[in-house]
Design a protein around this nucleic acid. Structure first.
Lengths: 218, 218
DNA sequence: CCTAACAAGAGAACGTTGTTCTTTTAAGTG
DNA sequence: CACTTAAAAGAACAACGTTCTCTTGTTAGG
């Protein structure tokens, strides 16, 4: 809890500062122990405010994470774009997608929680803004990776969406809950069934990309 | 709430009957309004018992659904096997997988909630039993679909796992939350981005199957 | 500089979760 | 017909997200 210069945020820029402080606290806590374990009270305590104030800034707990998820989408897209100049074939695009995702565990965590929890208990405007950000970002990203991978923009979009979807499933599987950790410790055979994140993601995307019409013909 | 022949289950067979009644109630409620919305209290009321009793039969709320999920895995595998004689090429196997999943919304719902919630807050033995059921079932299913699809058993397993994983992501996306329904009602462009379940699942699996080594070479 | 309004923030209170504790009592047993 | 047992009920509890009320910095106007 870092005490800021002002006690009350009345000016708009101060309010924005508070909002950011809340987001930062939420991001840090979620990165440390997972989105689903971080309560509203924990965020409030971390940022040094009462719970009711967090609710005033963001309508609900889920809206905080929806905001974080939107930001992470933009950051991921930018990170992929940065690696794109060096990617000249489908394989390189696939690894770029996979590795940028692997470097963003919080994003993957958020992806896995989006449809099952973050998109519930949220105001309509917040959900609307989030969805627009996501479809806009994934369309843009798809268009960007398409030429490098030798795909049509629509296929590029599909690949990008598949990467995010796969990451959302694979991440919680590859990072099992405490209970599953105990299970795996007892049963090596089961532990072997726990998929490693990057290789599995790469294999999935590779198969997916290879199965897309344009690449099947070549 | 159906009153049973006995008031108290002392004999083992009666206990089993109670257990089943609880599972049935949970299944029905979850099928009606989604796993995540069904509380322990709702199950208790539906079955006509106090909450504490539900907890005694199953350790936690999540263990009820873990049990249901295990049963649904077996049922799905059986349903696919039943359709397999008519499936002689990869395409037919893919549609068999997709359509049997589409016919089991509760299973897809459970799949989507497994790693993010059902595998938490559960006893180690329960998690262990569940995982064994799942990996056993998916291995068996993979081995069964492999010859029909012209794949190796390992590839068949991968395809079966991919089908379940995809279904778990696609189902909540294709069946949006109440908030998202409102969003889609306001914004047709966003509504168009909401993927239809079966076609998307089929396209995904088709691409996946076509990208697997054995089929790529042919 | 003083004062009055506004609204940020604190904190108590509420309803709902899931879980635990205590009590009651139906169902087997001798 | 006692007598034991554990199934079932329900009160109690802790934790959660949210709402309500009150306090008090902060700022603008005189």
């Amino acid at each position: 809890m870092t005490r800021s210069a002002f006690l009350r945020a009345r000016r708009p820029e101060h309010k924005e500062q508070r909002r950011q402080a809340i987001l930062d606290a939420a991001r840090e806590l979620a990165a440390a122990s997972g989105v689903r374990t971080v309560s509203l009270g924990a965020v409030a305590e971390a940022v040094g405010l009462a719970k009711s104030n967090i609710v005033r800034y963001f309508g609900t707990r889920e809206e905080i994470y929806l905001q974080l998820a939107a930001e992470e989408w933009l950051a991921w897209s930018a990170a992929v774009a940065e690696r794109l100049p060096e990617a000249t074939d489908p394989e390189a695009v696939v690894t770029a997608l996979a590795e940028t995702l692997a470097a963003r565990p919080l994003f993957c965590d958020l992806l896995g929680n989006t449809s099952t929890s973050l998109e519930h208990n949220v105001s309509v405007p917040a959900a609307h803004a989030f969805k627009r950000t996501v479809v806009g970002t994934v369309a843009e990203l798809g268009a960007r990776i398409a030429p490098a991978a030798g795909l049509t923009p629509a296929e590029g979009l599909e690949l990008a969406a598949a990467a995010a979807g796969l990451a959302g499933v694979l991440y919680p599987a590859a990072n099992p809950s405490p209970v599953l950790v105990q299970v795996y410790a007892q049963d090596a055979e089961l532990a072997a069934s726990c998929p490693p994140f990057v290789p599995t993601l790469v294999r999935g995307l590779r198969a997916m990309a290879a199965g897309l019409p344009t690449l099947r013909e070549s």
